[in-house]
Nucleic acid binder design. Structure first.
Length: 293
DNA sequence: ATCCAGGATGTAT
DNA sequence: ATACATCATGGA
């Protein structure tokens, strides 16, 4: 195992590991203490988190102004990619128009970053997110990894990667339903098969945001909202604004003029108001609304 | 018991 | 294009 520490001061705009990993963006990091998704605790905690990505095991925590890690390889490049450590948060905040709600969210959770999750686990987690609580989405992804993900043994303990598309494409729908995926089971299986067959290649998606969103909806169980989540939390389209129930409530209360009736038009109105990093603003507001509840 | 949770799909208009 | 019922599961 290798180990290291990234000084927080070297991360432009600061960093907060807990809010980044426990804000409903990614479902691929587990806390060592087994306590998933602590909605009551204050941020700035020093818990260890771990994940398996690209056949590598990574463990990380934030303490004493450092992002500490141990891993089966040099984790700095991986952490930089997964947690978008090169994003200049100050510049992103500066580029976002002043707004009371967004300013408050940025102030409260400053340091939280958009993640860059691997495509397939991100896709599956948000297909599963339909009409589902965040805590249970987490459970479903954990179960999928445990049942069908490749095993990694580290210090005598077993961890699991997330399954590949081909792994879930060949699983029966009934088996997925047994994992409590409900009506999402056939969606996951069908989309996994499409990816395994190369019917959609994430790397070949158009650069244009709206075109990419439209292209993603060919997958089963993927509408505009899930597509936006994948574009934002995996593919780096920082203007993507997932219009979920929480954000819709915020629109009703704070930005009623942005509600244009349809998803596409409301999305455009929100993006015109909040700019090229509207996805960052959305994620801060989403987390702020849920966490302050 | 009834409602709701990071929605999408099939069908009818 | 838009409106509606339907889709599992578990917690409040």
């Amino acid at each position: 195992m290798e180990r290291g520490a990234i000084p927080i001061e070297s991360i432009p705009g600061g960093f907060d590991l807990q809010s980044t990993l426990e804000s409903g963006q990614t479902y691929r990091w587990d806390r060592d203490d087994g306590h998933i998704y602590d909605r009551t605790g204050a941020y700035g905690g020093t818990a260890w988190y771990h994940t398996v990505v690209d056949d590598e095991f990574i463990r990380a925590r934030q303490v004493d102004a450092h992002l500490e890690w141990t891993a089966t390889t040099d984790a700095v490049p991986l952490l930089t990619r997964l947690l978008r450590l090169n994003d200049d948060l100050d510049a992103i905040v500066d580029a976002t128009p002043a707004d009371p709600l967004i300013d408050e969210a940025y102030e409260t959770y400053r340091g939280m970053r958009i993640v860059r999750d691997p495509f397939f686990p991100c896709l599956v987690s948000f297909i599963c997110s339909a009409q589902m609580r965040v805590e249970r989405i987490y459970e479903m992804q954990h179960t999928l990894a445990r049942e069908y993900g490749r095993e990694h043994t580290v210090d005598g303990r077993t961890y699991h990667a997330f399954p590949e598309p081909a792994d879930l494409a060949t699983v029966s729908e009934a088996a997925l339903r047994d994992l409590k995926l409900g009506y999402r089971a056939p969606y996951v299986k069908a989309s996994a098969a499409m990816l395994a067959d190369g019917e959609l290649v994430p790397e070949d998606l158009p650069n244009d945001y709206e075109a990419a969103r439209e292209a993603l909806t060919v997958l089963v169980g993927v509408g505009d909202k899930v597509a936006d989540c994948v574009l934002l939390f995996s593919l780096g389209y920082l203007e993507a604004v997932p219009l979920d129930t929480w954000i819709q409530t915020a629109i009703d209360e704070y930005y009623p003029d942005c509600d244009r009736g349809s998803y596409a038009e409301t999305s455009r109105a929100i993006r015109e108001r909040f700019g090229p990093y509207a996805g960052y603003a959305q994620t801060y507001v989403f987390h702020h609304l849920r966490h302050s509840f």
